[in-house]
Simulated assay, not measured.
Amino acid sequence: MQLEKINIVIVDDHPIVIEGLKMMLKNHSFFNILETFTSGSEILNFVKSNEVDIILLDITLPDANGIELCREIKKISSNTSVIMFSNRSERSIIMQSIQNGASGYLLKNTSIDELIECVKGALSGNIVFCNETKLIISKPSQNELTIPRLTKREKEILQLVAQGKTSAVIAEELFLSPLTVDTHRKNLLQKFNAKNSTELVTIASQNHMIEI
């Protein structure tokens, strides 16, 4: 029985990656590479007028963040399965991609057999990962294991610290004394086991506790 063609689009800012994927996939007759792009704006325009089954999408693009781009693609074409294809191996990035509608996450050292298996799985409605990604998401980072509980006031101050505001400015905005703000900041550093405000903001951002 003739297998129905799987229409694939590749989005990556490195032409050598695109060519490598095309060479690997051309040996499998059920793949039809519709188009390849090196920027985010191009793929958004393409999915508006073309039926795409699978998009292999890099995260780092010259004009867009692939994770945000994934969400925009799904708004335009909910039936298109987007599989992130990246060198980024941070657990927080993997999970954020899935939250934004990705059907899977593959690292660029994924074998062709894994890639094909994951594409088929995504088309069946599954969330797919290469073996290395499965290991990453099965082991939460130390920061994720120790997410502290914050009071409403601590959350407010944490968000303002993330915006780079000083204790004096925060105190003025929240109608508090600078001493009270400093006390809250010290408590936040202790709760997050952070050495300074930069590390505090980094940990909080990784755990999606603040908006940057």
Rank of each mutant, 00 (worst) to 15 (best):
A102S: 14
E114Y: 07
E144G: 05
K152D: 11
I76Y: 02
E144P: 02
S92M: 11
E156H: 09
T80L: 03
A102W: 01
I76V: 08
S81W: 01
I73W: 01
T110L: 12
N143C: 11
S97Y: 01
I136T: 04
E154T: 09
S78V: 08
I76A: 04
S77D: 08
C130T: 12
S89V: 05
R149M: 12
R71M: 10
T133E: 03
Q96V: 10
C70R: 02
K120T: 12
K75L: 13
R91T: 05
E72Q: 14
S92N: 09
M95N: 11
I147M: 07
L106P: 03
R153M: 12
I76K: 00
R71I: 04
N131M: 11
L135M: 11
A102M: 09
L150Q: 06
K134V: 10
E132Y: 13
E156G: 06
K120C: 06
S141A: 08
E90M: 10
C130G: 15
S97R: 01
A122K: 02
E132D: 15
T80R: 03
E72C: 04
L145H: 07
F85T: 02
S111M: 10
N143P: 04
I73S: 00
K120Q: 09
L115A: 06
S103W: 00
N87W: 09
S78R: 09
R149D: 14
I116Y: 00
L107T: 10
Q96L: 15
T146E: 15
R88M: 15
Q96W: 08
S111G: 10
T133R: 00
S97H: 02
E132A: 14
I127L: 12
I112R: 00
E132S: 13
M84T: 02
S141P: 04
L123F: 03
K108H: 07
D113I: 15
M95K: 10
S77A: 14
T133I: 09
R149V: 15
R149A: 13
